[in-house]
């Protein structure tokens, strides 16, 4: 039996909204410790990793590890009916369940229940090594969203370079080019923290960075981690309960 109540149901809704443009079908991997999602996009250029710790839920019960295969677009349709202050209670049987039951409860007078059909999804889980990164940048999530959105009008590839003076986002395109420099700042309102061992410069597809910023409502700050010649990690922490992490493979110089 899997049964868990998320008091702030809107957090789960925001997670599904954040990943549904990248991931069509995915497993909710439920275990005693957490509910997790790991999936690549169809082009295998990016990877989404979600974790919601059991402590994020009340009345968490997971008798044995279970993978619940969902279609994110269909899940999103059901979550459209979630009230903004509703809790969600998830329920599924142990042995290859056909459906996931979700109860939406807000005020005392209304309880809505939905059943989402599940499917068997064969996925390859990638092992992501827990290695330190050369550069880690923490900045406001909405500021990162604005930069990525603004630069997309100039071209399709963004060079992110982290150096002594700060982090530079650069785009070169047919109509011209642009640079946005983000420097360390202690100001409460838009605090920027840059930890750098060695300068790093990598090229990324803006289209994917834009997909990642769909997670902006989940977190005040985004954490961007880079090392030479490996995928960037764009992390949206969910309070102390988990995260949505996006990994994006760089574009490689020929």
């Amino acid at each position: 039996m899997f049964e868990a109540q998320l008091v702030e149901g809107k957090t789960f809704k925001a997670i599904i909204e954040a990943i549904k443009d990248l991931v069509v079908d995915c497993n909710l991997d439920c275990s005693e410790e957490e509910v997790a999602i790991q999936s690549m996009d169809s082009a295998h250029v990016s990877l989404v990793a979600v974790r919601l710790s059991a402590s994020a839920f009340s009345n968490y019960r997971c008798d044995r590890p279970n993978s619940l295969g969902i279609n994110t677009a269909n899940m999103s349709k059901i979550l459209k009916m979630l009230g903004k202050d509703d809790s969600i209670t998830f329920k599924a049987e142990d042995e290859s369940p056909d459906s996931l039951t979700m109860l939406f409860e807000g005020g005392k007078s209304t309880i809505a229940d939905f059943e989402l059909k599940l499917m068997d999804i064969e996925t390859e889980q990638l092992g992501i090594p827990d290695t330190p990164y050369q550069c880690t940048i923490q900045m406001r999530a909405d500021e990162f969203q604005r930069i990525v959105r603004d630069l997309q009008v100039l071209g399709d590839t963004c060079t992110i370079s982290c150096g002594k003076e700060g982090v530079r986002f650069s785009v070169t395109g047919a109509i011209g080019n642009g640079n946005i420099l983000v420097r360390s700042s202690d100001e409460d309102k838009d605090k920027v923290t840059i930890n750098m061992e060695e300068p790093v410069e990598l090229n990324f597809a803006l289209r994917y960075l834009n997909f990642f910023t769909k997670a902006t409502p989940l977190a005040e700050n985004v954490v961007i981690s880079m090392s030479p010649d490996v995928p960037v990690v764009v992390e949206y922490p969910i309070e102390e309960f988990g995260h949505v992490k996006f990994y994006l493979a760089p574009k490689i110089e020929e």
Binding site: H44, V45, Q125, P129, T157, A249, E254
Partner: peptide
Amino acid sequence: RKPQARMDSFFAVK
């Protein structure tokens, strides 16, 4: 244009 690398070339399947 710079070619796009794929995720599976960085992380191995578990």
